[in-house]
Design a protein around this nucleic acid. Structure first.
Lengths: 198, 198
DNA sequence: CACTAAGCGGACCGCGCGGTCAACTTGGTA
DNA sequence: TACCAAGTTGACCGCGCGGTCCGCTTAGTG
């Protein structure tokens, strides 16, 4: 019943593949080919499909890893003393992760894979908790929700990404601008209801 | 020397093709195939390439049309009495255009085509003027530039686009949030320099 | 050390893409 | 109306993709 554990070389190749794929996607977008990923990892193309049934499965595995990383950070930050700083730190970490390797376009390719949805939900829960705490303490305007912040999270890199030879820190500027809009001082009534996320 | 003018049916087909291509790209993203575009326009595939040498040229033509539309609006709004309302109206129009048909992904595909760069520059100039006026009147924080606003312009739809079954007005929420961050009241010092665009 | 199943590699397949071309049709002109 | 350059068409081409498959290699075991 209990299957034999994975062989050592197979485990190593799986790790190599995930890293190579992340790099290759970051460089060439969704069009990065499976063959190139295999070459970069130093394995044959067949090996890719032994570990990941389809290209979409490979994408999903990458996304799950990255989201889990952020979720863990968010959960840790819930214990921090300063709620505002905790939220800012979380958003900064998310933006930094994406600055290093922008893989946001992968998200669209693997909707509907349950493990991805679950990882996403865990991250949303973490954000929700961080936001709730900050809002209760009055450092966040009362009309923004966890879902709002979850969505805004990706914006700073997106904005900075339009600048061809941008400073690698440009996203900080737009993160700061967005955070200024989230504070109670500047709040004017918001049109449209806050969205409900899965 | 003066070439004979384009035939009437050719001009009609060109218009049909641009419309069909915009629809097809909006529905299927960059992967929309030239063959499908031709079918949708009711012409043969060869006709597409008679009007647009490559797929990228077709994309460029679409982008130029859309940007020209916004540029004209921006230039008109410079004469408006209320500078803050003018800027808000411009950003609203830009977001509405993109809400109807999101073609933002096309921008990356046709960098480096001079006509696209020129159309983009004209739009940037219009935004710059609108922003300058609003800033001088004190309704915008002094540390944001035209380039900042130009970049932020695309963010509300991007953010709302992550919500699967979003209200078609959700972008208004995030546009309002961003505008709140642009007002002087909430301003805290911004990290990173403002970017310089083209 | 011998055995075996897990793992590996890369030639191979079918497909759909962007782009070409030569035979055909048609709008505009004199 | 007769003419022809401009315009149209869809079969066709080569390519690179995701995915398959089977003969070979190798890690782990008794």
């Amino acid at each position: 019943m209990t299957a034999r554990p994975q062989r050592a070389d197979a485990a190593r190749n799986r790790r190599l593949l995930l890293a190579a794929a992340a790099d290759e996607f970051a460089e060439h977008g969704l069009d990065a080919s499976v063959a190139d990923i295999a070459t970069r990892a130093g394995v044959g193309k067949g090996t890719v499909f032994r570990h990941f049934a389809t290209k979409d499965d490979l994408i999903a595995a990458i996304l799950i890893d990255r989201m889990a990383e952020l979720s863990a950070l968010g959960e840790r930050l819930l214990a921090a003393a300063d709620a505002e700083a905790a939220l800012r730190e979380f958003l900064t970490a998310a933006a930094r992760q994406r600055q290093e390797r922008d893989l946001s376009f992968l998200a669209a390719a693997s909707e509907s894979i349950p493990e991805v949805t679950a990882a996403r939900q865990r991250m949303l829960d973490a954000v929700d908790a961080l936001v709730g705490r900050a809002r209760d303490l009055g450092v966040l305007r009362p009309d923004v929700t966890g879902a709002d912040v979850f969505l805004l999270m990706c914006a700073p890199n997106y904005i900075a990404g339009y600048v061809p030879d941008a400073s690698p820190d440009l996203w900080r500027r737009y993160l700061a601008l967005i955070l200024d809009g989230l504070r109670p001082e500047a709040a004017r009534p918001l049109p449209a209801e806050a969205p409900y996320l899965s």
